[in-house]
């Protein structure tokens, strides 16, 4: 049940294939156990969990600092990361983020899933899907900063160390998703 079989809509004409047939995804419980072990080892060796939005944030601020350093120095929230001669990239979470991209690529490549394509519902034009992805991403990025963390930094990491706020956050994410899912059923199905 847990395997995912690609359907016609997954295959775009522009597909660049490295492996002919994409392998199935692994069992979710197996993936969960592996992810749990990675998370535990991260905590065990560094005292920190995982994160993604923090790294993206710092990479963004790095470029902002290149373009408008004066602006950074006037906004206290940005100042903490890149004020004066501080380098926003000088943080462990940036390296976790770079590693995430590399790891995702290698896993996809080994399993024949590196393919230029757009995953979308069967009745949605590609451009609409792209627009919605950008819009959803904007909400995600904004919400992640407001909540001081994303699914990785708050829900996974904070959940495993039993932070009250992280659990409240996690249920809010699922709640928000389910609340809106009904209205978007045509978009995904």
């Amino acid at each position: 049940m847990t395997t995912y079989t690609p359907t016609e809509t997954d295959v775009q004409p522009t597909a660049v294939r490295i492996r002919r047939v994409a392998r199935d995804y692994v069992n979710p419980y197996f993936a969960g156990i592996l992810l749990g072990l990675v998370l535990f080892l991260a905590f065990f060796f560094t005292g920190n969990g995982l994160g993604a939005s923090g790294g993206l944030n710092r990479i963004l601020v790095f470029f902002e600092d290149l373009i408008a350093p004066g602006h950074i120095d006037r906004v206290s929230y940005l100042l903490e990361m890149a004020g004066g001669d501080r380098n926003p990239l000088d943080s462990w979470v940036v390296y976790v983020t770079i590693g995430t991209v590399l790891g995702g690529f290698v896993a996809g490549w080994r399993n024949g899933r590196v393919k230029l394509e757009t995953n979308r519902g069967p009745h949605v034009p590609v451009r609409v899907r792209w627009l919605m992805a950008f819009l959803g991403g904007t909400l995600m990025g904004y919400g992640a900063r407001l909540a001081r963390g994303c699914t990785s930094g708050q829900a996974l990491s904070g959940g495993a160390v039993l932070s009250v706020g992280s659990w409240a956050f996690m249920f809010a994410v699922f709640g928000g998703g389910y609340a809106l899912a009904y209205f978007l059923r045509k978009f995904w199905n």
Partner: peptide
């Protein structure tokens, strides 16, 4: 923030 992220998700 979590609700906004749920919508974004």
């Amino acid at each position: 923030g979590g609700l906004i992220m749920g919508f974004g998700f």
